[in-house]
Amino acid sequence: MGKSKAVNSGGKKPMGRRMKEFVVDFGRQWELQSMILPGVVFMIIFCYIPIYGLTIAFKHYTVIDTLDSAPWVGLENFRIILEDKFFWESVVNTLAISFLKLGIGFVIPIILAIMIYEVSNKRFKRFVQTISYLPHFLSWIVLGGMLITWLSTTGLFNQILLWLGIISQPTNILLDPSKYWWIATLSDIWKEAGWGTILYLAVMATIDPTYYEAAKIDGASRLRQIWHITIPNMRMIISLNLILTISGLLGSNLDQTLVLMNSQNRSHAEVINSYVYRMGMTQGDFSYATAVGLGVSIVSVILLVVANKITSKLNDNQSVL
């Protein structure tokens, strides 16, 4: 250990000498290197080769081609995207669901975390946390199966709506395209709202309790304490989450879509991810599907940068990323 530290100081030594030192050190560290190199090989195969594989977005790839034999077509695939009305339909659905999730789903975990934080009874607090984290660990297939039963003609929701007198005839709600955006959003919130509190609660646990004591002496109500102490202390983590959410606006939940989508609600259920899946895996148009995926990730990176710029302006020029 000491030996390798000693030789690591050369910046001005000649190139050949440095190479030799590197080889000698490498040989001495063969045990450590033999732990890391399998990981490096793994990354080259399973991460970097697929990244190189993105080049098929600029090619016309068919099943009989290899990656290299397929002819280049430049931006042809991207030009087709612009005229593809099914693609734009999926963009509209993705954005609609993402904005609904952002508008409703973003604040709920914050409010919920504050409510849980304000509970003084330890056992009740733990009970609420235990229950609310549970849905996060259910798979979308399981939840999708549940939703299909709840939304069916004899299901829970129809029973409630009938009982409340809102409807007179039960219908299968999942077959109604106009309700799909809400189903996707609300089921996602149901699943993830509780789990979303966990980071906020971790941050709140670090707030100095003397702030609250001082506020209490000054006669601040509980709501005022939340507004003037808790929320300002969570500003950083809220901004960080907001940035990540905004950069994920074009991403969507493929598992959720594949379970809940059917031939009746497709016009409102197809999102970009499932469209890539359909074009690539079902229709076999690999080049086009890759182009769609690549285009969307580029826009997502741009969104990330823009969101980071805006939130850092709001946070007195401190960047959270």
Binding site: C47, Y48, I49, I51, L54, G280, F286, A289, G293, S297
Partner: peptide, 16 residues
Amino acid sequence: VITMFFSGGMIPTYLL
């Protein structure tokens, strides 16, 4: 770290 932020996506991974 690069692998945490970039990936080839569904189709190139499938071909691999």
